[in-house]
Design a protein around this nucleic acid. Structure first.
Length: 415
RNA sequence: CGGAGAGUAGUAUAGUGGUAGUACACAUGCUUUGGGAGCAUGAAGUCCGAGUUCGAUUCUCGGCUCUCCGACCA
């Protein structure tokens, strides 16, 4: 993409109506734009990051046997009355049709998926199934905050697994746990699997926490055996603030952000929806389920929150909006021509290049923008570099600048 | 939902009971081209409503919005 074609501008100063680091940086760099509290537009660069994140998640879910679908956001009131959550779910957005009928804007999709599956599950032969979607969720938060970390409208991957028995379900829970660890690694995030509250229908669950002062959660992490327990369930899990319940090591109290959460649903909603199947003996049984959530837009916020310096964002390679930020310095025809050619050649080699071809911009501003946008590799072409048929290369997370001939650089991507 | 703070141009800000200023961005022209350039000209703004006042962007009240702290986060 050419920067001259990117309508979304960077700001020289951070926005005054944001306090959190992720919102400040992402808005200043033109990745997102606030519409109202907790409601953001994803601008071209931000959407690219979000898509990268979601594609990594998608790939891993598929790898774990997940089958993708897309459910509606508009949920008939009736579905939510079946579980009692039309009243019980505080953050439920409710709306009405002008022609009759009330709806919820989906904050989670058990109410829809269980109803859907009644048509598709009737025998143990139909199980297990692993169904997921990546979709926009709505939660009427009393106080949205911290940019993408707690929003009213956000993106989430939610996978639901359905099993013939608890043992099978527990096995898949472990599969998902490993899958989540892999996913976050690919996303470039260090997560701490943490024992947490499972809410009303299961004793415990597992959260994937990222250490950050911006976090809303406090976890107890053992320095010796790496056992982590969310403070909210410390007593339940027999964890203490200073001593590990597992190995008697010392625990630290750390602030963290929840990036994902997996937990058993057991038979709770199967009971509400009467979702059952015939086992081998022809006996009717309730389907046992698990639920696995991962906030993809929140992950984008977390990365911005924990990976940056005073100059701007620093994206991990896997989720960066582009792999190369190409800058043409100066306006000489020679440089312009070389820049164009590099852009075309690299794009032809499947490199994702953001080309700063803005003729009217000073070099300084281009460099400042490159730092702000945080693309992993900066490539500069100028009169000076062309004297040696070269380009200048600099990683965003390093100060080292190296010169490499254009030929050598391109050859790396030939075959 | 309780508490606190803040709303002035696209962005960031100054200021005043009496014609609203600066910087960047924007438009036009000339100059400039390796870390947010220079000169000139131009366009663009006081969140909404009521009250006080001859006159309110400024004072008072109400509302709306944003941010932060707390509660909540199934």
């Amino acid at each position: 993409m050419r920067l001259s074609e990117l309508f979304a501008k960077t700001q020289r100063t951070p926005p005054k109506d944001e306090e959190s680091k992720n919102a400040k940086l992402l808005e200043q760099a033109g990745f997102i734009q606030k519409l109202s509290a907790g409601v953001y537009t994803f601008l071209p660069l931000g959407l690219r990051v979000l898509n990268k994140i979601e594609n990594i998640v998608r790939e891993e879910m598929n790898g774990a046997g997940g089958v993708e679908i897309l459910m509606p956001s508009l949920h008939p009131k009736e579905n939510w009355e079946i579980t009692g959550r039309w009243q019980a779910f505080d953050a439920l957005f409710k709306t009405k049709s002008n022609f009759g009928g009330e709806y919820a804007l989906g904050p989670t999709h058990e109410e829809i998926l269980y109803a859907l599956l009644k048509k598709h599950i009737s025998s143990y032969r139909d199980l297990p199934v692993y169904i997921y979607q990546i979709q926009t969720k709505f939660r009427d938060e009393k106080r949205p905050k911290a940019g993408l970390l707690r929003a009213r409208e956000f993106r989430m991957k939610d996978l639901y697994s359905f099993h013939a028995n608890d043992k099978d379900r527990d096995k898949y829970y472990e599969v998902m746990k490993e899958t989540y660890i892999t996913v976050f690694k690919k996303l470039g995030l260090n997560v701490i699997p943490t024992i947490a509250s499972g809410g009303t229908f299961s004793e415990l669950s597992m959260e994937f926490q990222v250490v950050s002062d911006a976090g809303e959660d406090i976890i107890f992490l053992c320095e010796k055996c790496d056992l982590a327990v969310n403070k909210e369930v410390a007593s339940k899990a027999d964890a203490k603030s200073d001593k590990c319940s597992n190995c008697s090591g010392i625990t630290k109290e750390i602030k963290a952000i929840e990036a994902g959460n997996i937990f058993p649903l057991k038979e709770k909603y199967a009971n509400d929806f009467n979702l059952n199947f015939k086992d081998e003996a022809g006996k009717e049984k309730l389907v046992s389920a698990g639920c696995y959530g991962l906030g993809t837009s929140r992950v984008m916020g977390i990365i911005a929150e924990v990976m940056s310096d005073e100059k701007g964002l620093i994206w991990p390679k896997g989720v960066a909006p582009f792999t190369i930020h190409l800058i043409a310095v100066g306006e000489s025809p020679k440089v312009k021509k070389a820049g164009e050619k590099l852009y075309v050649d690299l794009t032809a080699r499947s490199r994702e290049v953001l080309y700063d071809d803005r003729a009217e911009k000073m070099a300084g501003e281009k460099f400042a923008d490159a730092d702000l946008l945080g693309i992993p590799l900066r490539m500069v072409v100028s009169e000076k570099t062309l004297e040696k048929d070269s380009v200048e290369l600099k990683e965003r997370n390093s100060e080292t600048i190296r010169l490499e001939t254009i030929k050598t650089f391109l050859e790396k991507y030939d075959k």
